[in-house]
Simulated assay, not measured.
Amino acid sequence: MNEELKPVEELTFRQAMAELEGVVNVLESNTLELEESLESYARGVSLLASLQKRLDAAEQQVEVLMGELAPAPDDATQDTTLQKA
């Protein structure tokens, strides 16, 4: 991986996914020297961590938005009784 790479944080989600696919393909091809393989693996781990973080944030945002869509239960439909454990 000799070419100059953008910092992971500057990549769009789609760019990061494409680069991660490329890293996986190169690693699976078994054509790199050990040092290059380690560099590629480290880059792949960084990309994967960033993508997972972005997916988690998007999932949380969707949950918030879905919560805003759900109507709040009124007293007639909400179970307000205390239940014994």
Rank of each mutant, 00 (worst) to 15 (best):
A49C: 10
E10G: 04
E28Y: 08
P7M: 05
L27A: 04
M66H: 09
L38A: 13
V24Y: 06
E21M: 12
Y41G: 05
D74C: 00
D79F: 04
A72G: 01
V24R: 13
K6M: 08
D79P: 03
N2V: 08
L5N: 09
A42E: 15
A18T: 14
V45Y: 03
R54Q: 09
P73E: 01
V24F: 08
S40G: 07
Q52H: 14
S50I: 05
K6W: 04
L65G: 03
F13S: 03
A70W: 01
E10I: 05
L32N: 05
V8N: 03
R43Q: 01
Q83S: 06
A42K: 15
Q83P: 03
R54H: 04
V23P: 00
A16R: 00
L65R: 10
L11D: 00
L69A: 08
N30M: 13
E33D: 14
L82E: 10
F13W: 11
E19S: 03
E39C: 07
Q83R: 10
E68G: 12
E33C: 08
Q83D: 09
D74E: 01
K53V: 05
P71Q: 11
R14M: 06
R43A: 01
A70S: 07
A85G: 10
Q52P: 02
L55D: 15
Q15H: 10
E9P: 00
L34D: 12
L34A: 11
A85E: 14
D79M: 03
L82G: 06
L47W: 00
T31G: 09
L5F: 08
V8M: 05
L48I: 04
A70R: 13
S40R: 08
E35W: 12
L48H: 09
E28H: 08
N2E: 11
Q60W: 10
A76G: 04
M17G: 06
E19T: 06
A49Q: 15
K84C: 05
M66E: 14
E4T: 13
L55G: 10
L38K: 14
T12E: 06
E3Y: 08
L51G: 00
Y41T: 13
E63Q: 12
N25Q: 14
K84Q: 12
T81E: 13
S29Y: 02
E4S: 10
N25A: 15
D74R: 01
E59G: 12
A85H: 12
V8W: 00
L38V: 13
T81R: 11
L51F: 05
A42F: 12
A16I: 00
F13V: 11
A76N: 07
E63Y: 06
K53P: 00
E10V: 02
S37D: 07
R54P: 02
L48P: 01
D75G: 03
P73G: 03
E4L: 13
A70P: 02
Q52T: 14
V24A: 12
D56E: 15
L65N: 13
Q15D: 12
A42I: 04
N2R: 10
L69V: 09
A58R: 14
L51T: 05
N25S: 13
E9I: 09
